[in-house]
Design a binder for these strands. Structure first.
Lengths: 301, 301
DNA sequence: ACCATCGCCGTG
DNA sequence: CACGGCGATGGT
């Protein structure tokens, strides 16, 4: 992927920067549309949106936004048909599935206390947490997206209902609940994204490819984990493509991989394509530190 | 589960509270050991640890701790055998798998700048992010655990190597990298934990049970999502037990569930045990809002 | 009933 | 301050 990445921050544009018009944002590369709220490519993901009060159903909570998809309206802005899961809507689903960062730009809107008074303002990166559809008052279907702000831990404070439970201990025994029992926070690199396409979004262990309406889902896994103390590199030779089940199994050491790519712990062999050179030293590291040792004590039940 | 929960904050104990001795922490229920760094039950999870410099291999970075397991040492504290994955060590693995919060207490240690000068201090809740084993200088095996602080978004700032990349945009196109391509942040409720045991850690769709050395892995999924705008309840009738693959598929609307528990979108039927009363209104909500509609546009490849 | 434990308080 | 013995508690 020598193509430069459309996703994430734009050089020289700071969070909070203001703009007068769409064309200005288009010229600088912040929002690649002269008209239209969603900028993106259907099967590759969305890179930016503008929220400017065009849809009454939108809800803005600052670090959390409920955003409405595009389409299904006539020139007068009236809903006359179901919104389809294509173009910008599908792009947002792909962004959710691939974990891509989404630039959010707020336009002036008197009814939104988070909007600027005039013009447009770049408000930083969000992620698409989920999508669903609703049948509006018009009787037609609309797509909706829940966006959560990245960075600064704002995501942690997005709770259902009332104000966030205070951090200090005192009353209850569990930490404040978040919106889901399991949160998959995917922060994708360009590299990981390319790997997924390279393997056609199929698990290198079992070939599974999870097909959603928005596109296929698969996960990129580091062989030698990034960060302390493993300090694995974030490069081509250190990532493999796994379905969620095998990703969990790999991280928990239920199986590992031999130098000839046969699997240890479970039957099978890792499917490795020609151009994908996996670092054998990383495989060795995983075997030496993560594979369940023979002296393990198995739980009784 | 009428048993009171050992996990999470302790009533009346605030983060930062100080104590003079183990017996004091034991009396108040903060750390259920008179001697011993890890408090927990092997197959049920660990609820608290004390880090006080007893192990030289421990590394403390404030919101990130590399903690060493127990065992394999003689009375003089010398390593004389491999550490086994049982007792406290297995309890920490279960806490990782189940996503349980871990109370962290720091004891005085001149070599640790995050430790209190004297006595012990309750430093709040962490999660067990991963575990692995190393062969120490003694030639014997030790278990290690990576702990990340919960709350306040401190976790977001834990990067490998140098200082955290500044939040404002400017140079690169991707958000700051975190330690893993996929982060599973599991915040478990007592309810969800009980459900997992109720179904013997088996997926209600495919019966899969992922067996790690520390114990089985499964995920609890909300049928109607918590939080805005769905506002599903966090109760027994709104959670089901799914393997990671089917959890992703359910959240993405690849399949849904009919009132007779037959699956829509894929073949099969949800296995529902007698005592588990699932709210049919929640199933209906999922079908009405998340199941991929028929007018979906499938990706070409 | 046994056993293991990142403590604790004496001595030197 | 290092070392050794004492010691209770809860998991196994």
């Amino acid at each position: 992927m020598s193509v430069k990445d459309r996703f994430g921050h734009i050089p020289a544009v700071m969070v909070g920067d203001k703009f007068d018009s769409y064309v200005e944002m288009h010229a600088i590369g912040l929002h690649n549309r002269v008209q239209g709220g969603i900028s993106g490519v259907a099967r590759q993901g969305a890179e930016s949106i503008v929220i400017s009060g065009g849809y009454e159903d939108d809800q803005d909570f600052g670090n959390e936004i409920i955003y409405t998809g595009q389409g299904g309206r006539n020139e007068a802005g009236k809903h006359i048909s179901d919104q389809q899961l294509k173009r910008g809507n599908q792009a947002l689903v792909v962004s959710e599935i691939e974990g891509l960062p989404l630039r959010v730009i707020r336009g002036a809107d008197r009814n939104n206390k988070f909007a600027p008074e005039t013009g447009y303002r770049y408000d930083g990166l969000f992620r698409v947490e989920s999508h669903w559809w609703e049948t509006g008052k018009s009787g037609f279907k609309v797509w909706r997206f829940r966006l959560l702000e990245l960075d600064g831990g704002a995501v942690e404070n997005v709770n259902s209902g009332g104000p966030t439970e205070p951090t200090p201990a005192g009353n209850n025994t569990m930490p404040a609940r978040v919106s889901s029992t399991v949160q998959r926070i995917v922060r994708d690199t360009t590299l990981a994204r390319y790997l997924k396409y390279y393997y056609d979004h199929k698990c290198q262990v079992c070939g599974t490819r999870l097909e959603s309406a928005g596109g296929p889902y698969i996960e990129a896994a580091h062989v030698r984990a990034l960060g302390r103390p493993h300090d694995g590199p974030d490069d081509w030779g250190n990532i493999i493509c796994l379905c969620p089940n095998h990703h969990v199994m790999f991280d928990l050491g239920i199986f590992s991989i031999a130098d000839d790519f046969s699997l240890i712990g479970i039957d099978g062999k890792l499917n490795v394509k020609n151009g994908h050179i996996i670092g054998l030293e990383h495989l060795a590291y995983h075997r030496e530190h993560f594979l369940n040792p023979l002296n393990k004590t198995l739980p009784e039940s």
